[in-house]
Simulated scan of single mutants.
Amino acid sequence: MKRLIGAGLAVVLVPVLLLSMLVAVLFGSEDEAQAAPPGGQPGVVCTTAPASGSGGSAGSTTGQDVAGFSGDQLDNAAVIVGQGKALGVPERGWVVAVATAMQESTLRTLNYGDTMANGQMSSSRGLFQQLDAWGPLADRLDPAKSAAMFYTGGQAGQPGLLDIPGWEQLPVTVAAQRVQQSETPDAYAKWEQPANQVVGAVEGRTCTTTPAAGAAGGTSISLPSNPRAETVINRALSQLGVTYSWGGGDANGPTLGIHDGGVADAHGDYAKVGFDCSGLALYAYAGIGVAVPHQTQAIWAAFPHLTDRTTLQPGDLLLYSSNGAANGIHHVGIYLGDDRMVEAPQSGDVVKISSGIWGGNRGAEFIGAVRPGA
């Protein structure tokens, strides 16, 4: 579906990850980061206190300004939340739906689509910019009916959010994309925190984000003495649970993978939005303006080598070789200390925190590390 990036906001907010936590000092400290134990689900953690300036109930938000949205925009958000409640959709789904409508229409019921390459207007309409095949125009222009379709699917069999396997564990941008099938699949990520705020406002509550969880659960770190290092690791940890996709990932987040002619193709990575191992490293370091190549052997060649494990610091990129030489390097992970790293391991897996990295075959394949931006 075409994107409508109209007169909306230029707000780009990195999601705030508040689940406890790693404590570390990166690039110059001997303390190691400690990963939080497994547990928790992605979603919205809300207090019962009304949001600042809130009327305390859905539909009473007209005239307020929440995360840059006000008036009928908040009324439409309240309708989206109300439909989610009526359909039994968990709060996480409300956030996905509101974030999607923020990107598609800036929470306005638009009776027009964008202009296509052939000069014609797209048939997409409404809060979610649903195409003709999703349903009658009147339904797509009805906030309640269009929201219900986002959750349950279109009239021509298009899957809704509730049809997406495991949607609750997916990042907002991935869950939204699997419904919308957008030409700009990464566009939804920036709306997660504003969506949390708006959902909190129309619910009369203040809400905060918890991340999509991988095998080790959602985590983040606080490094007041080294904010650049904090950014690197937290950008990687913010992607826990994102699908592995060979060739996927860039400086802005997960992307479609590419064909490899082998194992990754057998897993359909070319049709998945996600990261491979070097794509995750690239994304993490882009947060501090350091360019990391999207290829493991090129990463090894680009930076000075650290081969003594006792000198490693959380945030270093760990490289693994199948033959002990540079031409056998095939994997990279981001060191967390304490025998752990965050990585995008392989096809069929997700971004996760792995433990016991110095033992077994993995320990034997470790060839060294690099410290970009040191």
Rank of each mutant, 00 (worst) to 15 (best):
P314L: 09
A201R: 07
V96R: 06
E203I: 00
V198N: 00
S321A: 14
V370K: 03
K2N: 08
S123K: 01
G40R: 11
P165Y: 02
D75T: 09
Q177G: 10
W246G: 06
G8Q: 14
A291W: 04
R371V: 01
G39S: 09
P304I: 12
T109Y: 01
I258G: 02
A10I: 01
Q103V: 15
T255H: 05
Y188G: 10
T243C: 02
W191C: 02
G40P: 13
G249Q: 04
T255R: 06
A291C: 00
V95G: 02
D75H: 08
D265A: 12
A101H: 02
V14D: 15
P42D: 12
V198T: 03
K272H: 08
C46T: 14
G135E: 04
H267N: 15
I5G: 03
W300V: 06
P42H: 13
L317I: 04
R205N: 09
S322T: 15
M21A: 14
E230W: 07
V12D: 15
W246P: 01
P254E: 10
G200A: 04
F303D: 06
T152H: 02
T48G: 12
D308C: 04
H259Y: 09
V45L: 12
P224Q: 11
L4Y: 14
E32F: 08
A78D: 07
A97H: 03
F27W: 06
A298E: 14
N323K: 09
G63M: 05
C277H: 09
S347D: 10
Q155N: 12
G324S: 08
G324A: 11
A364R: 14
V79E: 10
F150Y: 15
E203F: 00
A49V: 14
H330I: 03
M102T: 04
G274D: 07
S225Y: 12
P372V: 02
S124Q: 11
G63Q: 02
D75R: 13
F27C: 00
V11E: 13
M149H: 10
K352Q: 11
N76G: 11
V290M: 08
A301K: 09
D308R: 08
